[in-house]
Every structure is written in C-alpha cells, then in structure tokens.
C-alpha cells in the first residue's frame, strides 16, 4: 500500500490516547474516550478491518461510555442527609457551599438527601443509605460523618466556625466500604 494518508490517520491514535491519559476530571476523560473510539474506528476501517471498526464504535464507544458515565455518576458522590424544614430559611447555604467546594476539589459532588424528621435521618445513617448528616443545634450546625476518609477530608479543610464535625464510630464494622 502506497497511500501516505494512512500514516497521518495512524498518528492520530497515540495522540488521542495521550490526551485521554492526561485528563483529570472523570467526565472529561469519558468524552475524550468517545473521541478515541471515533478515531480508532476510523483507523480500523482504513486499515481494512470494518468488522473491528464496527465493534469499536458499538461496544467501545457507545456501551462503554454510557455504562461508565452511570458508574461514575453514582459512585463519586457524597450523600449528606438533611432535614426539610431546616433548609427553608436558607441559612445552611454558606456551609453547603464550603462543603461543595471541598468535595468538588476531588472530582466528587455533594448530594443533599432530604428527610422529614430526625428518626428517619438516623435510620438512614444506620442503614448506610447516606454518608453523613447535617443538623442544626442552636446557632451552629452539627455534621456527623460515617466514613473515616470523608471525615478526615472535611476536618482538615473546613474552616467554618458554625459547624461542629464528629465521626460516627461504627459498632458493626464487619462490612467494610
């Protein structure tokens, strides 16, 4: 084969793969993975393997990206349980912004899970439905974290004086998360 453009197309594949490896944000990496899939399908088709190109486009690009996007979205999250009536006056906003900026630095996101009363909130924490709770106690807020890693992360970085942070020691620690 004396078709010189094949070399140019082949050079695109390492270029995009280096781009993919250098990504920090998982969502950006997924988009770049789609680009890599498109370029790989082009290269395979040009090199005379249309079956491989088709598989790369269907499985490598579409299925893998969709499944990984769902996995990243549901795993890289900190679920914080709050009470519905405490969020109404908007005094919690500042603390939530501080927490959000802490978890966003690690490419995670903060999800507030609303509960009606304290009983439900504690049951959810015991059932490992949420990672922590945030309740108002007088003028300040009390944050209880169930996971040690998250507790250490917030403890070192949260500078707000209106929040008291505690770590919930788990009594039944056979199940590790």
């Amino acid at each position: 084969m004396n078709e010189s453009y094949i070399y140019a197309i082949a050079a695109l594949l390492p270029l995009t793969s280096i781009m993919l490896v250098l990504q920090v944000n998982p969502y950006s990496a997924l988009v770049i993975r789609g680009i890599l899939g498109a370029v790989a399908a082009l290269l395979y088709a040009v090199l005379g393997a249309p079956d491989v190109a088709l598989t790369e486009a269907l499985v490598g690009t579409m299925l893998a990206i969709t499944l990984y996007a769902v996995a990243v979205r549901s795993s890289m999250v900190m679920r914080l349980g709050v009470l519905v009536k405490e969020g109404e006056d908007g005094s919690r906003g500042e603390l939530m912004t501080a927490l959000r900026s802490i978890v966003n630095k690690r490419q995670m996101r903060l999800e507030l899970v609303s509960y009606v009363d304290k009983e439900e909130l504690h049951t959810a924490l015991q059932d490992k439905d949420i990672h922590g709770t945030c309740l108002r106690e007088g003028e300040s807020y009390s944050i209880v974290m169930r996971l040690q890693r998250l507790y250490e992360m917030i403890q070192t970085e949260l500078v707000s004086s209106s929040a008291i942070l505690t770590y919930l020691e788990n009594s039944d620690s056979q199940e590790k998360h």
Binding site: Y27, L30, V31, G34, A38, A41, A45, V46, G48, P50, A53, L54, A57, L58, T61, M62, I65, T66, A69, V70, R73
Partner: peptide, 23 residues
C-alpha cells in the same frame, strides 16, 4: 467500509445524546 461508515455516523450521534443526558 461504506456500511461501517454509515453505522459509525449513526452510533456516534446516539452515544453523544446518551452522554449529554447523563452530564
């Protein structure tokens, strides 16, 4: 190769829509 090109064109659009919805 032609039919693969047509399918890649279609699948690329579908993947983009799915990913855009999740993001």
């Amino acid at each position: 190769i032609g039919i693969v090109g047509a399918i890649v064109l279609t699948v690329g659009n579908a993947a983009l829509m799915l990913l855009a919805n999740i993001i």
